[in-house]
Amino acid sequence: MKNKYIKSNIFPIFIELLFVVSCFIVEKQFYIYTNFCFYLLLAIYFYIRKDLSIKEWYNAIKSGKKFFIQVIFTVVLISIAFYFTIILENIFPNINKGMILLRADNWLKLILFTFSTIIFPPIIEETFFRQNLISFKNNKILIFTTFLSMFLYALEHSLRLWGIFLCMIWALLFSVSYIKTRNIYVPMTAHLICNLIINGVLIIDVIKYILN
C-alpha cells in the first residue's frame, strides 16, 4: 500500500512543487499560464490513470436526494469557512497572504482563467488533494494524510504562511466532507458550485473590462 500510495502521488506532488517554484521565477502576469499548465498536466495524468471519471460524477449527481443534501451541507460549511477567513483577514489586515492571483485582461486569458478557476479545480483538486492523498488505512495515517493534503492544497494557492493557514481552513471542510461521505463527488460538486458563485462574478467583470 505504501509503495502504491507514493507511486500514485509522486508525480502530482512534483508537478505542484514545480508550479510553486515557478511562481518565484516568472512574473505575476504569467501565473495564469503556469497555473493552467499545472491543471492540464494533472488532468492528463489522472485521465491516463483512470483516477477520475466524468461519467461516474454525472451518475452521482443523478443519484438523488441524499447526494444533494450532502453537497448542500458541504457548500454551507465551505461558505462559513470562507467568511470566517475573511474575518481573520480583517482582524490582521497588514499580514501578507501571498495569494497566487490569476489576472485576465484579454479573451485568451479569460478562457484560461475560466478553466483554471471553475472547470479544472473541482475535478483536479478533489481528485488529487482528497481522493488520492487522503488514506483511510488507519486513524493515524488518516490524520497525517489529511493534514498533508490540506497543506499541499494551500501551497497551490498561496506562497506565504498566513495565506497557507487560511487556505487550509477551506481545505479542512472539503476534506471532512470526503472523509464523512467517502464519496469524492460530494466535495467535487460542492467545490464546483462555490467556484461558479465566486469566480463567475469575476469572469463577468473581466468580460465587461474587455468589452470596454
Results as ranks from 00 to 15, higher is better:
Met1Ser: 11
Lys2Gln: 11
Lys2Ser: 09
Tyr5Asp: 04
Tyr5Gly: 03
Ser8Gly: 06
Ile10Ser: 02
Phe11Tyr: 12
Ile13Lys: 02
Ile15Glu: 00
Leu17Ala: 10
Leu18Lys: 01
Phe19Leu: 10
Val20Pro: 06
Ser22Arg: 09
Ser22Tyr: 13
Ser22His: 12
Ile25Glu: 09
Val26His: 11
Val26Thr: 12
Glu27Cys: 08
Lys28Glu: 15
Lys28Gln: 14
Gln29Glu: 15
Gln29Asp: 14
Ile32Ser: 01
Ile32Val: 05
Tyr33Phe: 15
Tyr33Ile: 12
Tyr33Glu: 05
Thr34Ile: 14
Phe36Ser: 00
Tyr39Glu: 00
Leu42Thr: 01
Ile44Phe: 01
Ile44His: 00
Tyr45Leu: 01
Tyr45Arg: 00
Phe46Gly: 01
Phe46Pro: 00
Ile48Arg: 01
Lys50Pro: 03
Asp51Gln: 13
Leu52Asn: 10
Lys55Arg: 12
Lys55Asn: 09
Glu56Arg: 04
Trp57Gln: 01
Trp57Lys: 02
Ala60Val: 00
Ala60Met: 06
Ile61Met: 15
Lys62Ala: 13
Ser63Met: 12
Ser63His: 12
Ser63Trp: 14
Gly64Ala: 05
Lys66Trp: 12
Phe73Cys: 09
Thr74Tyr: 02
Val75Glu: 07
Ile78Cys: 11
Ser79Phe: 15
Ala81Lys: 08
Phe82Asp: 10
Tyr83Arg: 07
Tyr83Lys: 08
Tyr83Met: 09
Phe84Trp: 06
Thr85Gln: 01
Ile86Trp: 10
Leu88Ile: 15
Asn90Phe: 14
Ile91His: 06
Pro93Arg: 04
Ile95Ser: 02
Ile95Gln: 04
Ile100Gly: 04
Arg103Gly: 08
Asp105Lys: 13
Asp105Arg: 12
Asp105Gly: 08
Asn106Tyr: 03
Trp107Lys: 11
Leu108Ser: 09
Lys109Tyr: 14
Lys109Asn: 14
Leu112Arg: 08
Thr114Arg: 04
Thr117Gly: 06
Phe120Leu: 02
Pro121Asp: 11
Glu125Thr: 02
Glu126Gly: 00
Thr127Ser: 09
Thr127Glu: 07
Phe128Lys: 00
Arg130Gly: 00
Asn132Gly: 05
Asn132Lys: 13
Asn132Glu: 06
Phe136Lys: 12
Lys137Ile: 14
Asn139Arg: 10
Ile141Thr: 14
Leu152Tyr: 11
Tyr153Arg: 07
Leu155Arg: 09
Glu156Phe: 15
His157Gln: 09
Ser158Thr: 10
Ser158Ala: 15
Leu159Pro: 02
Arg160Tyr: 15
Gly163Met: 03
Phe165Asn: 03
Leu166Thr: 05
Cys167Ala: 14
Cys167Gln: 13
Met168Leu: 07
Met168Gln: 06
Leu172Gln: 07
Ser177Ile: 06
Ile179Trp: 08
Lys180Gln: 11
Thr181His: 05
Asn183Ser: 08
Tyr185Thr: 03
Tyr185Gly: 01
Val186His: 07
Met188Cys: 09
Met188Asn: 07
Thr189Gln: 05
Thr189His: 06
Ala190Asp: 03
Ile193Asn: 05
Cys194Leu: 13
Cys194Asp: 10
Asn195Leu: 01
Asn195Val: 00
Ile198Ala: 10
Ile203His: 07
Ile203Met: 08
Ile204Tyr: 07
Val206Thr: 05
Val206Gln: 03
Val206Met: 00
Val206Glu: 02
Ile207Gln: 02
Lys208Ile: 15
Tyr209Asn: 11
Ile210Glu: 08
Ile210Ser: 07
Asn212Lys: 13
